[in-house]
Amino acid sequence: MLSIKNLHAGVEEKEILKGLNLEVKPGEVHAIMGPNGAGKSSLASVLSGRPNYEVTQGSVTLDGKDLLDMSPEDRAREGVFLAFQYPIEIPGVSNINFLKTALNEIRTYKGLEPLSAKEFLALSKEKQKLVEFDAKLVNRSLNEGFSGGEKKRNEIFQLAMLEPKLSILDETDSGLDIDALRIVSRGVNKLRSDKNAFIIITHYQRLLDYIVPDFVHVLSDGKIVKTGDKNLALELEEKGYDWIREEAIH
């Protein structure tokens, strides 16, 4: 599904990703862990098309299509979803109208009819229930005055509504208490299928107790330096990152 080859990218002349390779197949969940400054969030930014990032080398394709050539909105329409580490508050834009606009733009792109108000409402109710999202929040301004946990849950609700092929969760666990973490994880687990894939960026192993990954990658200095299964995350939790860095050097 997603194929990243020798990706070099950075911000303002500063190279952050230095030759990153990653293959993600449908149905898989990949966790990306690593120390601060390794380039985890930069990877999320590059994949979603954040404007100030520049790709200097390498390629990224989604089902064979060149992702790097596309605008952020076209990437989303092709099925890439980024759950933000810090979701943006937009006062005056209602959550529900925003989602309706987004969903219908994606449908139009795919050559599908826009959903009627009634169909949209039914879908929204179904997904709210699935990911346990508070109906009161749906009608408010987008993320305005939401708690940290509510914002993250809204990201998962959007994910559920837009049904992307590839979801990138950028430190979705940061700032969540244990209850919110459980709810968010339950939501993601319900949305997993053999047709979609997830990249979960996290500092901590605890999220991976709830969302069990197929692969765990360690990102260090802009490259994936080690790949393993879920047990690698436990090992990292125990030993920290230094041993991997040393291993990579030797």
Binding site: R50, R75, I90
Partner: peptide, 11 residues
Amino acid sequence: ALFYLQTRGIG
């Protein structure tokens, strides 16, 4: 905010 909206498929 503009980027956030775009990442949801909004032109």
